[in-house]
Write a protein that binds this DNA or RNA. Sequence first.
DNA 1: GCAGAAATGATACAGTATATCATTGCTCTG
DNA 2: CAGAGCAATGATATACTGTATCATTTCTGC
Lengths: 153, 153
Amino acid sequence: MQDINKILDAAEASCSASGARLTDKRKQVLSCLLQSQKAQSAYDLIQGVKENYGATMQPTTMYRILDFLESENLIHKLQLANKYIYCSHISCDHSHEVPQFLICNSCDRVVEIDVNSELIKSLTRTVEQVGYTLVSPQLELDCLCADCAAHAA
Amino acid sequence: MQDINKILDAAEASCSASGARLTDKRKQVLSCLLQSQKAQSAYDLIQGVKENYGATMQPTTMYRILDFLESENLIHKLQLANKYIYCSHISCDHSHEVPQFLICNSCDRVVEIDVNSELIKSLTRTVEQVGYTLVSPQLELDCLCADCAAHAA
DNA sequence: GCAGAAATGATACAGTATATCATTGCTCTG
DNA sequence: CAGAGCAATGATATACTGTATCATTTCTGC
């Protein structure tokens, strides 16, 4: 994990490049996400920005900010858990691959991995065979992290 | 799509085999799911059994029935949409593979496919490399069906 | 029939997400 | 630098998804 301030700078640069603004509130939400390896819900984050920055945000505002951050490829929404996680490639040079998430269903700790491109090709072929179109090949896998697996055993 | 009554019979047989009971209410819910290729939410189904059978069910009851049907492998829960779909292998002879779902994000029409086992092996290897354990390899892909893709174009 | 277990009912509430309309603040142009 | 127009946020209400808890009914096997 790199220094959070560096990532925030990279995020800001990336936003300017696309003509978007990383406002204070948006930065607060992003910071909360960057400070944890765990996926957090919109309401977790409302609580988080309150504790860390004394800022109060309504759900509407939070969801709008989350949508914005997602559209800028700074965070990911995990459908499996209805939670959000920072994108681990904000300050990378190499281009984005399709993300694959391993989500601990006990503690919400998330690992982001690039999907093997062969695998994506194989999935895409299968989808096309039945006449469907793949909108997002993002994969989310229901897992247990090492710690939680140890406790459960 | 086979005849629904035959599938219901197969479902009933499968339940008896595992010492479970496919009660009237459970059968009503399963029937509603079998009558549509589209994934339906718990509340959609509450509406559905009311219209089709005049039966009123509380959310608690519906979720209990859905849990039961899932535990008997008669239906699947789709995390991507928070909706439910019948299992397309209720009256098949061949053993269940890991399911992969193609979900139209516009109309909720679902296609169920067996995942290539090589692909599952590859996923499992990746997961183990980072110390995680795969709980359920069920894959859900965000797609557009042919009809919705045509309308969008 | 009766005891015990399984299934369902009833009520309340927690958590997730969006609709709608109002207000504030930034940016660009003249 | 004023003011128009748009981007961002605020405020209120409400819809949707899911669970906790305790009560009642129904089924099964003895």
